[in-house]
């Protein structure tokens, strides 16, 4: 099946570039637009209008699927969803303007919507 390569680790979008706290993915795979939106909603709800949030991934890859109970052939299936390709090290969400406790809780809720292992990063432990 031609689903593209997801080898290696993230060579870009792997650092905190905008916010003070971030959520970094440790596995590889596809993150659907619905999952990204669910994670965003979960994080912003916990932040309660405090701070700012950046989504660092964009679902730009269409994934097609054949309808149920369809025989093989008759051409490619219709686009079903859009996904972002993630490699270990990619930043998914960045947050700033709130306390570390709130950021941890918000990103923990967001990570529960993401089907990969994630970790919390702060600027203190990434700056040289």
């Amino acid at each position: 099946m031609q689903r593209g390569a997801r080898a290696g680790t993230a060579t870009s979008n792997n650092k905190l570039d905008f916010g003070e706290y971030g959520l970094q993915v440790l596995d590889r795979g596809w993150l659907t637009a619905k999952q990204i939106e669910a994670a965003r909603v979960a994080a912003t709800r916990r932040m309660q209008r405090r701070g700012q949030l950046w989504i660092r991934v964009f679902p730009d890859k269409p994934v097609s699927k054949k309808p149920l109970e369809t025989r093989m052939g008759k051409g490619k299936g219709a686009p079903e969803e859009w996904v972002a390709v993630l490699r270990p090290g990619n930043m998914i969400i960045e947050i700033s303007g709130c306390t570390e406790t709130i950021a941890r809780e918000a990103l923990a809720l967001a990570s529960s919507k993401i089907p990969f292992r994630c970790r919390f990063l702060t600027r203190q432990n990434t700056v040289v």
Binding site: T9, A10, T11, N14, K15, L26, P88, G89, N125, T126, V128
Partner: peptide, 12 residues
Amino acid sequence: ILKAAQRHPISN
């Protein structure tokens, strides 16, 4: 002076 540091994206 220390100008730049290259870190591993996962293990840091």
